[in-house]
Amino acid sequence: MYLRNSHTVAATLLIAISPATASRPCTQFSPSPVPVQHLSAYFLPQYGLHATALLDIEAIRHTLALYPYIIDGRDFPSLSSVFTADAIANYSVPIGVVNGLSAIESTLGAALASFLGTQHLLGSQSVRICDRNSAISVSYYRAVHFLPQNKTTGPGDVVTGDAVLYAYGQYQDSWEKRHGRWKINYRNLVYMVGDAWDPVS
């Protein structure tokens, strides 16, 4: 009897959704990138989220975690698990805006072809469920790109004799839930510091 009442109370607590009252509207999150000083206004704490919203957040985080595995493993066809077919991805300079899943796959494949390998690390991350079928998220990342010794080509014809290039930035993503699955419909890659590429010996 005690366990039954405990579950009932827990369920009741999760039913009430209390979105952060001062959060900026999700509709303003894309297509323009959000300056870092405004990000917190989109991801203020939310308390008492419904169990479904918590499950949706976990599903989005799991999908975000797939992205580095796919990119670093050069498994570009599996990007269909991350992006919608009509997704738009603004990868900033030097890649620019890419329209559609097939173009995202081929563009990333070509951009990374000259590297021996890459490692994408995700850091600070926030997810906000906007309604039943839309969400937004921001993920800090650091990407390491390994060049063959003395090779001088990389994305945007990077000229360097160094063996490693670092990129520091954020993935700002707008999500849609289609056929029960969350996928990115719009991505802005935002660099955190001046130059996109930081060569390191």
Rank of each mutant, 00 (worst) to 15 (best):
T152A: 02
N90P: 09
L39K: 04
V193T: 12
A10M: 13
S134F: 01
R24I: 13
G117R: 04
A113C: 05
K183I: 07
Y191H: 12
T107W: 00
A20W: 00
V138D: 07
A113D: 14
A85D: 12
Y47E: 12
Y69S: 13
P19I: 03
T27W: 01
N150G: 03
S106N: 05
Q28W: 12
N188D: 01
V190Q: 10
Q37Y: 11
G169C: 06
R74W: 15
P199G: 05
G180K: 00
R24Q: 14
T84H: 02
I104T: 00
T63I: 08
D162V: 01
F76S: 00
S201C: 08
I71L: 15
P77G: 00
G96L: 02
V36M: 00
T8C: 06
A53W: 14
L122V: 09
K151H: 13
L64E: 14
C130A: 07
S80D: 08
A10Y: 08
S81L: 09
F83E: 02
D162N: 09
A196G: 13
S40W: 03
S80N: 14
E176K: 12
V98Y: 01
A20L: 05
L189K: 05
G194Q: 10
G100R: 06
A16W: 10
I70H: 03
S134I: 01
A10S: 14
N185F: 06
A113R: 06
P45V: 07
G154I: 06
A163Y: 01
N99V: 10
G117F: 09
P45G: 04
Y171W: 05
A20V: 02
A10Q: 15
V93S: 15
P45A: 04
V138Q: 07
S126F: 11
R128H: 08
D198L: 10
Y47D: 10
L122H: 08
A87K: 04
L49H: 00
A51F: 11
L121Q: 08
G117S: 15
S40C: 07
N99Y: 13
A143Q: 11
A16Y: 11
Q172P: 15
L116Y: 11
Y140A: 10
I184A: 08
